[in-house]
Design a protein around this nucleic acid. Structure first.
Lengths: 202, 202
DNA sequence: ACTCTAATGCAACATGTGTAGCGTTAGGGG
DNA sequence: CCCCTAACGCTACACATGTTGCATTAGAGT
């Protein structure tokens, strides 16, 4: 992610922790616009050039924050039905995209300015979708949906409308959006969509 | 969009045309990173301060470009089937998102930096989805799908996976992506998804 | 402890971005 | 044709962003 530290002793580790904490604090208090190398450095008592050298730009800072966040033990909820699992997932996505402060939106915005932030976010989402594949496997195991259903394709179909409406189209946050997208996707899956190699099962 | 011009005579109109042309040229030649007020102004012989006063920032420039583009006479293709119409639409979206130079992606990136660009892009897409509603109306008229199907919800379901995969998840451009998303959405619509007020029709 | 040097702190510079004041130019209206 | 002034060009400034060279500090190995 960032430049390798060959002396991970007290000082370097302390600087990293102070800087990353300051990034989150700045993001929470003043949003993405109030986030810059200088403000972060000044707010945690680390010199500008140190931050520039280790993280290069704001995207690098957020990429490092994101790399830490990706190491958690998150798992999708198990509600017993495909509809319930997708709805639970979509409500989490919805909360992340409409939450205040808009940390997720800030990370997305940063991904358009920094290649490192883009790569970190790509890796983060790839990991999340991998973990969610179990939702589709469970549904197939219950014979709710066909055996050959493409997990990623189904999960993207369920979540993509949320990202599209809230992040790109910037629709006002509609409470029912998450559940509707989940239900529509479940209907599609039961009807035989998302099956690899099959274009038109009807 | 930009500051109103009370003297739309030769000079002001000429300046605007030269600047907007230069924006597109810069975008095509050097991408979004090579786009700044200064480079645009220098490349078309208009002074920096003039561009700053009339368009304020890069987002304002792109918003003006977008406003012109929104005034075209685009209509969705009529292929005779819902599958065909959605596939044709998705192929256009796919081409826009993977085209080189990445003008669409540049506009999306700008929308995260400038409120004016964000609003212009929002209005552009709202208009496009409105024009696409006829696709759903035609399908309902042919009794391919239920009468109460929500047009926007269906259209977002069809196109959102493309934006999500190509813009946010940054998946490598998969040729079959557009057709698969279109086919999956058509299956869902035929199965009774996207009907307003109905959560679980199955 | 002592040495070596990675990492940091510091100052100065270079560049990019945006603004303010003021004179100049040229379109619009009489 | 002449006047008025919106729009533009120019200079200078203010600030943010990012870089470079060098001195200083302190972790790591012996």
């Amino acid at each position: 992610m960032n430049r390798p530290i060959r002396r991970p002793g007290g000082r370097s580790a302390d600087v990293r922790r102070r800087v990353l904490d300051a990034v989150v604090t700045q993001l929470v208090d003043h949003g993405y616009d109030g986030l810059s190398i200088d403000t972060v450095a000044a707010s945690c008592g680390v010199h500008r050039t140190t931050v520039y050298r280790r993280w290069r730009d704001v995207g690098g800072l957020l990429a490092d924050v994101l790399a830490e966040a990706a190491g958690d033990d998150w798992r999708p909820a198990d509600t017993g039905t495909l509809d319930g699992d997708l709805a639970a997932l979509n409500r989490e996505v919805f909360a992340a995209l409409t939450g205040d402060p808009p940390i997720t939106t800030a990370l997305i915005a940063a991904s358009f300015r920094s290649a490192r932030a883009a790569e970190a976010l790509r890796a983060f989402w790839a990991d999340r979708y991998d973990r969610c594949a179990v939702i589709v496997a469970r549904a197939a195991g219950r014979s709710e949906i066909p055996a050959g259903t493409d997990a990623r394709r189904l999960l993207v179909a369920a979540t993509a409308p949320l990202y599209h409406e809230l992040v790109l189209l910037r629709t006002g946050p509609d409470e029912g959006l998450a559940d509707r997208a989940a239900a529509d996707t479940a209907v599609a899956a039961r009807a035989g969509a998302f099956v690899t190699g099959v274009v038109s099962p009807g």
